[in-house]
Design a protein around this nucleic acid. Structure first.
Lengths: 246, 246
DNA sequence: AAAAATAAAATTATCGATAATAATGCCTCT
DNA sequence: AGAGGCATTATTATCGATAATTTTATTTTT
């Protein structure tokens, strides 16, 4: 066995670095939806030739944040409400698959670690009102399940859809943390407990259902934030264009 | 509206042509699983520089048939039984999402066309024993539903997973048509009828369940073919390495 | 002879330049 | 003045060559 086709421990090539930075820029809305990105512009920004930029564009396009059109270049996608529904439906289904597979794949030791993390999560929920920390710990549980489900393709698609959901949330609300209220966090806590118990009990159908319900809470939170966003942006019609200079 | 960011009506660029041909070669097993593909080799085959070949590699890698490792090149993936389970679980979930969304998105006119196609499909099922034709018509129904679900991302993931499943089937059986017996086709026919009726009735949960069952038939067919493959390839142990020359 | 170090070859990553294509502005014609 | 055609400009696609890295072969050392 001479050739190592497995993990890549080498330093990442430039195209991957650029792709990562572009993804961050798009998700954080530093590059607006629908924007047209030129190769030369990005190449100049990072001080490289356009070749790695092209590859970075393709990578970001694969995730779904960019659309590459032949001879016309790369455009940031411009999602609408309808696409948001699709993303959340996919998220529910994919997380459901991951949990379903986790039921069969997880070792008893993994199951114990899962319940341990659940206790830690509930502890955080009771102890603090910090929504950001809630999200942090809950995301860790979700990713733990997805990783131990031994399903690399499902994990990839899941990451992709979750990233799209996060971008949408940022686009529509520009502040997805605050709107993710503590009430939603508390409901999530109960659902996480249900989910973990079903997984250690190796009940795939029940775990699938719990996973869907869990993403459903996030979905409701998003839709609520979207309503607030619409309400906020429909009022100040008269007072726009306040200042044109810096 | 100067710039057209929508459909691309122009002739496909070389990288897309090469990507398509590579996909065909891999799915048809003309390039074996695990093979290491060199840029120069493909570039020479198609008489182009290596730049479009690189992009084609990335596109095939996105679909999941190729794995690109920095500084090491592109390798055809090498799926195992476990990965097959994952692919079929994903297929079930994604087709379920598409059907679920189709319930909400389809117009009444689309519903009528769907039922029309169902009648055509049942007609073929009763009239001929040609399994290939069964697959053809049933695939058309599935794709019709997925397209009318107005969910481009789900459609993309669905195509991707279906392609992986087809490749797996080819890898393990090298003849996925014959093993897809008529008994399975007949069971599929009943399930297709159930699915279509649920969709026109706009019952998302029921449509999801029917979609899962439908892919489940294909999954069983694959697993059966895999067993036969294993049985066939475990016997001729003694008579291997018959001839070394051409 | 086996293992480690080193040199050579092969391969990918990146660059700079050219070709192909699309968008933009200008000009003519009505 | 407006519409349509033409030249200009800008941008992407492709190419050939060079740099960086890995793999393979060779040599050296124990």
């Amino acid at each position: 066995m001479a050739r190592n086709t497995g993990d890549d421990d080498s330093a990442p090539t430039q195209d991957r670095v650029i792709a990562r930075l572009l993804i961050d820029d798009i998700v954080a809305w530093r590059i607006p939806p629908g924007a047209w990105i030129r190769e030369r512009e990005i190449a100049a920004r990072f001080g490289v030739s356009h070749a790695p930029v092209r590859e970075a564009f393709r990578q970001v396009a694969n995730i779904g944040l960019l659309k590459v059109v032949p001879w016309r270049g790369a455009f940031v996608i411009d999602l609408d409400q309808h696409a948001a529904d699709e993303v959340y439906e996919l998220w529910k289904a994919l997380f459901g698959v991951a949990c379903r597979l986790a039921c069969a794949e997880m070792s008893d030791r993994d199951g114990r670690e899962l319940m341990h993390r659940l206790v830690e999560y509930k502890d955080v929920t009771l102890r603090t009102e910090n929504t950001f920390e809630h999200l942090n710990v809950s995301n860790r549980i979700g990713r733990f399940i997805a990783k131990r489900s031994n399903a690399p393709l499902a994990l990839e698609l899941l990451d992709r859809v979750a990233l799209l959901a996060r971008w949408q949330h940022n686009v529509y609300t520009n502040s997805y943390i605050e709107t993710h209220g503590n009430e939603a966090a508390r409901r999530s806590a109960a659902l996480y407990e249900t989910l973990c118990r079903h997984i250690v009990a190796r009940d795939g159908d029940a775990a699938d259902a719990a996973a869907r319900a869990l993403i459903g809470v996030t979905q409701e939170s998003f839709e609520q934030a979207l309503e607030e966003y619409k309400a906020r942006h429909s009022k100040p019609r008269a007072s726009r264009r306040r200042a044109k200079s810096a």
